[in-house]
Nucleic acid binder design. Structure first.
Lengths: 208, 208
DNA sequence: TAGATTGTTAATCGATTAACAATC
DNA sequence: TAGATTGTTAATCGATTAACAATC
């Protein structure tokens, strides 16, 4: 398979969600032009993105909504169940663990871990908070593929290392720190996003 | 001012955080090389990024940690207080509102809004949950600059529009939907990140 | 001076956009 | 056939990396 640019995958997810909605609306066919209009993206970019994975449309006609949705589901691995653990039982960790859209989209949170003795053994919903020292065993027994890292910046590297050693497949990193591991990582650094936003607001004020 | 590529600002935030830590470690001088090593970024990229805003270093010597930190603080608007509201008083909204690192970094959550009648009037910490219909007045009276959008995808566009009309300067969008407004937006779409991560794990498995 | 590191220009790389032949 | 839209190649754009003169 040809190398896929990172941004393409992000957009594929966006296309997928739009197709889900179109399906809900009872739409049978769509086109790159229509998707482009709804998503604020160029039509040729959509076609180009799809072309990395094959031709899914009919010239002169467009794409069959359900067919394209299914193909993207397959490509993105959305069909399968992804068993995940949350590392860090703070506010954020609990919010993620309780985030309903995740469950609906095939991500099942099967465990929560922390290092704070006062939290261990407590329940959050039907999840018991476990100690990091039990992570490896739990991952092996429960076929955990993803770890969602919600720990403070200073603990991030240690936690990430433990996750990697436990045999988890990839990390969604909410901590405000670059982590160094050899498994795939996606960073969700919203304090950086917020600062970047602040910068844009300042810049804009300057112009106005 | 020359146009600054978006990714540059994100990295500036990362540099800033690293400098804060270096300051904490009592380091007086650093270099693009050292920053590069600590952050897993190329040294020339750091110099290039900084060069958009001027020359902050001394050839042959490097950068004075505290000096560079201060300049970045200034550029990014980190020195000033940013008053923000959270839209959507669900799990996620509450987690963000209670997220301590935000307060420490100059972002103050001064209000929470929702449209669910059962939530209005309830307290979260020392914040009272208010109705969206009161947003405009609140924003004007409290000089709110940022709105953090934590509503379900289907409500995102309406909420974003209300935020824009209330006169807020920019939006941090946690919802899984593209929103169309004319003020700056930063998207934090972690379900998309999670799906992108899933794809990378699949791809990697294929190779191994 | 010799060594080090910046700031900046030029080269490379990668991603987006435009254009259009293929074809439904 | 005429009109529409894809899939793909080529052109453009933008960001990263390399290279090096300037200079501490």
């Amino acid at each position: 398979m040809e190398k896929i640019p990172r941004p393409v995958i992000r957009r594929l997810v966006v296309y997928y969600r739009c197709l889900e909605r179109m399906k809900g609306e009872g739409k049978e066919y769509t086109s790159s032009k229509e998707l482009a209009r709804r998503l604020g993206i160029k039509a040729c970019q959509i076609r180009k993105d799809l072309s990395y994975f094959g031709g899914f449309g009919k010239r002169g006609v467009g794409y069959k909504v359900e067919n394209l949705r299914e193909r993207l589901e397959e490509i993105l691995g959305i069909g399968q169940k992804w068993r995940a653990v949350v590392i860090g039982a703070g506010n954020l960790g609990k919010a993620i663990a309780g985030h309903k859209p995740l469950q609906q989209q095939g991500f099942e949170i099967v465990g929560m871990f922390d290092t704070d003795g006062r939290k261990i053994g407590k329940k959050f919903g039907n999840l018991e908070i476990m100690h990091m020292s039990d992570l490896k065993k739990f991952v092996e027994e429960n076929d955990v593929k993803i770890a969602i890292l919600c720990v403070p910046a200073d603990s991030a590297q240690d936690a990430a290392k433990a996750v990697e050693e436990a045999g988890v497949g990839g990390i969604l990193n909410f901590s405000a720190r670059v982590i160094k591991v050899s498994i795939p990582v996606e960073n969700v650094d919203f304090t950086a996003s917020l600062k970047s936003l602040a910068f844009q607001i300042i810049k804009r004020k300057g112009k106005a």
